[in-house]
Structures are given as structure tokens and as C-alpha cells.
């Protein structure tokens, strides 16, 4: 039951980080998500990943505050994106159905944590796939990294150093994203020539 509540808090934090218009709030929501993953890992007996995850949260706050927080987002990003949300909703429903099958095969009669971790992962993918703000895309990658860590612990992993790899990736991504928005003078990915495909 505690695990489920923890996962629900993490999902709420992830969704808020994706949807809030204020990036400062997004950073602290992501930190809350990271802390949730760390607490889950420590309570599940994954002490090394849990400790590394805890450290990674402080690194995350520092790096995002230094790199991406000072970059202003265009005003139109605050407006609604109904189509993308509808597509995401359909995608999420299909994935949850798939996740039910996976959960059933791994641990019969105990769907919930697996389902919730899938929802968390999908929230990250939604942000990466549909958000136009570089900062939200970086936030999406952070959510995916954290969600996959939680999933890995759920699947029985107890000794890995994957959180360390995850935070290294986030630091590098944040630096590249900050440099890119400096060069282009915007955080709008639609203004980036190469990203048009």
C-alpha cells in the first residue's frame, strides 16, 4: 500500500513538472520525484542505487538551476495542446493494457506498482514527444530516467550503479540544451533547423 501511495505521489510530481508553466516549480517537482524513487529504492533494500539516487537529486537541482532555469520560455507554451494530450491519452490507455499483461506474467495478482511505473515512464515520453520547450523535453528525459530506475528496482535489481549513469546523462543533456538555447536565443524546438528532420 505504501509503495502504491509513493508511486502515486511520484506520478503527480511528474505530471506537474510536465504541465507547469513555471520551470522553477518543475525543477522541484522533479526533485520530489527523484526523492520518491530514492525512498522506494532504500525501502526495497536497494541501498547503493537508493543512495546514488539521493545524491543525484541534489545534483539535478543544482544543474537545472544553473543551466536551464535562467532561460525564458516563449509565452505561447502556456497555452493548451489538446491534440497532443488526446494522442497521449490513447497511447497511455493502450500501454496500460499492455502493462497489465506484463504485470500479470511477472507477478500475478500484484499489478499496481508495475502499472504505476509504466504510467510514470509514459509521462516522460509524453513530455519528450509533444512538448515544444527544450526545458520540458529535458524534464521528460529526467522523468524517464527516474521512472526506469524505479522499474529496475521493482524488477529485483539491488546493486547497480545505473542512477550514476542517469545523472551524468542529465547533466550533459542540460549543458547541451542550455548552450543550444543560448546559440539560438530561444527554447522553442520548432525554431531549430536540424530538428525539423
Amino acid at each position: 500500500m505504501i509503495t502504491i501511495i509513493l508511486f502515486l505521489i511520484m506520478i503527480a510530481a511528474a505530471v506537474y513538472a510536465v504541465e507547469t508553466g513555471e520551470f522553477r516549480n518543475a525543477v522541484y517537482s522533479l526533485a520530489l520525484l527523484g526523492l520518491g524513487v530514492s525512498v522506494y529504492q532504500l525501502t526495497a533494500g536497494a541501498f547503493l542505487p537508493g543512495a546514488l539516487q539521493l545524491i543525484s537529486v541534489f545534483v539535478l537541482i543544482y544543474v537545472l538551476n544553473r543551466t536551464l532555469l535562467p532561460k525564458a520560455s516563449p509565452r505561447e507554451f502556456a497555452e493548451g495542446e489538446y491534440f497532443s494530450r488526446a494522442v497521449f491519452l490513447i497511447f497511455m490507455i493502450l500501454s496500460v493494457i499492455l502493462a497489465c499483461g506484463v504485470s500479470d506474467a511477472i507477478a500475478p495478482n500484484s499489478y499496481s506498482p508495475y502499472l504505476l511505473s509504466f504510467v510514470l515512464i509514459l509521462t516522460g515520453f509524453f513530455s519528450v514527444a509533444f512538448k515544444k520547450d527544450i526545458k520540458k523535453i529535458v524534464a521528460g528525459i529526467v522523468i524517464i530516467e527516474y521512472a526506469v530506475e524505479a522499474f529496475l528496482t521493482l524488477s529485483g535489481e539491488r546493486q547497480g550503479i545505473t542512477p550514476l549513469i542517469g545523472i551524468l546523462a542529465i547533466v550533459l543533456l542540460a549543458v547541451i540544451a542550455a548552450r543550444l538555447s543560448d546559440r539560438l536565443g530561444t527554447t522553442d524546438v520548432t525554431k531549430i533547423r536540424e530538428l525539423r528532420g
Binding site: I141, I144, E145, L172, L173, R183, I192, E194
Partner: peptide, 18 residues
């Protein structure tokens, strides 16, 4: 141009890693 390409590569690469 390298920064844009790297960012795009990074996002797709990290999605693949996930």
C-alpha cells in the same frame, strides 16, 4: 548545428536507452 544535432541524438539515444 553540432549542438542541435547532438541534442536530437541525445534525446533519441536516451529514449532508446530507456
Amino acid at each position: 548545428q553540432p549542438l542541435e544535432a547532438s541534442f536530437k541524438y541525445f534525446i533519441m539515444g536516451e529514449a532508446a536507452s530507456a
